[in-house]
Amino acid sequence: MTRTGSRTTGRPTLAEVAKLSGVSPITASRALRGVSTVAPALAEKVQAAAATLGYIANPAARALASARSHSVVVLIPSLSNHLFIDTLEAIHEVMRPRGLEVLIGNYHYDAVEEENLIRNYLAYQPCGILLTGLERSEASRQMLAASGVPCVHMMELGGAELGGAGEALSVGFSQFEAGRAAARHLIARGRRRLGFIAAQLDRRVMQRAEGFRQGLAEAGLSAPELELLAPEPSSIALGGALFSQLLAQADDVDGLFFCNDDLAQGAVLQALREDIAVPGRVAMVGFNDLPASAHMVPRLTSIRTPRAAVGRAAAQALLTLLDGKRVAVSQLDLGFELMVRESS
């Protein structure tokens, strides 16, 4: 019997897949990676040959051969937030036709954990990296700058430098302006004692807080005593608890902006339990416009963020860099939309 496979591992090789399907190894590789330029019938033939042989690609060997892998790293701070799930889905939709693998790293809003992920993933020689936000440790900045790997930042705008390598490419929207829009909306509704409730106090949350404060200051309604800032992760349960706490501290509050929809949803449910009229007694505005918000009782007013559009545009910007081209706009602002509903 003729022995097939690598001499060292005994596993089927790409060359054997190519021979069985009657194509070149390069074409076989592209077909197995899902590159859209390979004809569907040919790709099906290659995939059938791979299945027959039991071939499994070796990304480490491929990276050594090309000095770069066919992987794109995406680093996000949470997998439990619907915001990032939508973003990841959009990134996959863009990367898959180019035959690029998406490696996901979740750093749980921890800069040290993100630093470790960056160090580990750079060892696999990714062809590109998508990062969430612009704030990270100095060690992370230095590693990214030294690697030369193309990077695009998501969810935030700004001219921050990447380890001194120049202006960082980013796709997102103004968190500051979103917070100010919430304040202006509540003020336009006749509310005058306006509070802000936040958790998971990362840079983007605090930018929203600054925007909200600015909106209040412009109307002469600043009220720092009506802020509750909790460092723990955002959740529906926490939203209900913080809502009750703030009303116990200041029973004259008549409008609230929440840094995330899950907090606002928890507050709406707690108001129902305590028989507090929304928006009669207190108006509420959330952030991100998560799917459940349009089905709360009352339906929740929220700032809709372009989470899928951000993922799509960031992935496309990274592909532009990988093609050796210049990205036309270094700070792509996709905006946001105030979804006015019954809660305000």
Rank of each mutant, 00 (worst) to 15 (best):
A60Y: 13
L322I: 06
S344E: 05
A188S: 13
M143I: 03
G324L: 09
A43M: 11
P224W: 15
E89N: 10
L221Y: 07
I129L: 15
R136N: 02
P25F: 11
A199N: 02
S343K: 00
S147Q: 09
P306A: 08
A41P: 04
N260K: 11
P77D: 12
N288I: 05
T4I: 14
E225V: 06
V38F: 09
L162V: 04
Y55K: 03
A277I: 04
T2A: 15
G220E: 07
A31G: 04
Y121L: 15
A41E: 14
E115P: 05
I118M: 10
T4F: 15
R208H: 09
E225L: 11
A178T: 05
A51F: 12
G99W: 06
M143C: 12
I129P: 00
A146L: 13
I303P: 02
N81S: 13
V23H: 02
I56F: 11
Y121A: 11
G311N: 05
V297L: 14
A146V: 07
A219Y: 08
T9N: 07
A314P: 03
V340M: 12
G105Q: 04
P224Y: 15
A199L: 06
G54I: 06
F243Y: 06
L100N: 04
L221S: 04
L300R: 00
F173S: 01
H108M: 14
A237H: 11
E225Q: 13
D289Y: 10
A198D: 02
A223E: 03
R312N: 09
A219Q: 08
P279M: 09
A188R: 09
P291R: 07
S137N: 08
S234Y: 07
R184Q: 15
A223V: 02
A123M: 14
R33C: 11
P224M: 14
L53G: 02
E101F: 13
I26Y: 08
L319N: 04
G166A: 07
G280D: 10
S174Y: 14
E156D: 11
R119T: 09
E44T: 10
S174L: 14
Y121Q: 07
P97A: 14
H153G: 06
F176V: 01
F336D: 01
A28V: 02
V23G: 01
P233R: 06
A51R: 14
A67F: 11
P59N: 06
A271R: 00
L100H: 04
A209K: 09
R299D: 08
S170E: 02
P233E: 08
A283T: 00
T301I: 06
A199R: 00
I118P: 01
S235T: 01
A31I: 02
A308I: 05
Q207D: 15
